[in-house]
Amino acid sequence: MHKIFSLSRKEQLAVQFILIAWACVVLIPLGVAVINSFKPNLGEVYRAPLALPSEWTWSNYAEAWVGANFGGYFLNSAIVSLSVVVIVCFCASTTAFVLVRMPFRGSALLFACFMIGVIIPIRLALAPLFTIVKGLGLLDTLTGLILVQSASMMPVAVFILTAFLKSVPSELEDAARMDGALPFQIYWRVVLPLIRPALATVALLSFVQAWNEYFLPLIFLQSSELYPLTLGIAEFRAQFSVQWHLMFAGILIMLAPTVIAFLLASRQFIEGLTQGGVKE
């Protein structure tokens, strides 16, 4: 790769120091959580919070999982997050396909509406949203929460996918039309595999957003058996307010799926963010 500028050795050291310092800022709290989540009792956490455990134990994880109903919260989070991913990926990709490839009267206005959705946070529309969800009889249901969270992710997803789709040559779709493919076949068999990196980006963002969402479940759910992990962990905090070793285990259980999702999709994620910026 051609270097547009080169750093002197001192400058390189300075840059590396800043990057390492920033990595420490990010990783130290996580490391502290990991270390303390394996400590056998609270005393060790208080005595030496930065020291390694005298005895490594998984019991905190088991206790958090069983004792605080983490299994139920985890399942609810998984249902909500995976449903949001599926709905957003399907709806946003079909929407982007139509907006980019089949423009119609008003499609520019529709796209502008999605862009307004990117700018304006969904929380500003909470009162009408609450009324709509209540009117539909979906208050205090996972379905209602899934639909609201999916809608909140749609603008960003449509924005990413339309930008990516514009970089896919339209001759491929012309070729598919000549071959007799119907619009849905073109979308499904030709376009969808080509926008996979962008789709992975959207899936990852949707999953992380849905998994970590605290505010929307708080508003739209009332029954504790429907709570996702974010609300569950708040309950957990109230129940085990001073049990830091259990708290850390709970936080790490919650964190694990997003880390795994990012690791699985990271290559496609980066491609999705960068592809289309330059013409190959």
Partner: peptide, 25 residues
């Protein structure tokens, strides 16, 4: 049937799938 300047081959498919796409559809 049309042959395009940019070939317009489906990059995710093999040569066999590309040639047979019309019949597959």
């Amino acid at each position: 049937a049309m042959v395009f300047q940019s070939y317009a081959l489906y990059p995710q498919m093999t040569v066999r799938d590309n040639i047979g796409f019309a019949l597959s559809v």
